[in-house]
Simulated scan of single mutants.
Amino acid sequence: MPRADFYLIAKPRFRDEPLKLVCELARKAHDAGLWTLVLARDAGQAEALDDMLWDMGEDAYIPHQIAGADVDEDEAAVLIAPPEVDAPLRPLVINLRDAAVEGSFERVLEVVPADDSAREPLRERWKQYKARGLDVAKHDM
């Protein structure tokens, strides 16, 4: 059964830089051998994630690329997709956008910012995933 995991940002190190949590989740997925698609909110966020994934330390190389015309998707364990690129879904999707992820996947990770204004749309998304029969869980980070 597909799963949706909501990661609620609470710790200061993630509150200041929510993309750090995204990098940690991508690293765990890579270590587990899961092909991952990150749905970035915009091109700037995709580039910031790309930079941060390069900068995870010498012992943490995560093959990743920003999706686009000249990308070899078979090489990139983590594919970062800005909204203007229509990238195929992968078994694991990390969603940073406002809408619930449609289509077929094994697991979706929703990263929930610390501010309350961002939490209301996520409650809606929680209900949508539940209505579609996904197994839904919450994690405080």
Rank of each mutant, 00 (worst) to 15 (best):
R125W: 08
D74Y: 05
S117Y: 12
P113D: 02
I94M: 14
L122E: 03
A67K: 07
K127D: 15
L92Y: 08
D74E: 06
P82C: 04
E102V: 09
A69R: 09
V101D: 09
P91G: 11
Y129S: 00
A77H: 02
L122A: 09
V108P: 00
D70L: 03
E124Y: 03
R107D: 11
V101R: 02
A67G: 07
K127N: 15
L92T: 12
A69M: 03
D98I: 01
Y129E: 12
V93K: 01
R90S: 04
K127R: 15
R125T: 10
A77C: 06
A118S: 09
D98M: 01
Q128G: 12
R107W: 02
V108A: 00
E73A: 09
V101K: 00
L122W: 06
R119K: 15
L122N: 07
R125F: 02
D98Y: 02
A87G: 15
A100L: 02
I94P: 06
L122F: 04
E106T: 12
E124M: 07
I94A: 10
F105L: 05
L109Q: 14
D115R: 08
A76C: 05
D72M: 03
V108D: 01
A67C: 06
S104L: 10
G103I: 08
D116S: 01
S117V: 07
R123S: 01
R119W: 07
E75C: 00
A100C: 03
D74S: 02
I94F: 13
I94Y: 14
E120D: 10
N95I: 15
A67E: 08
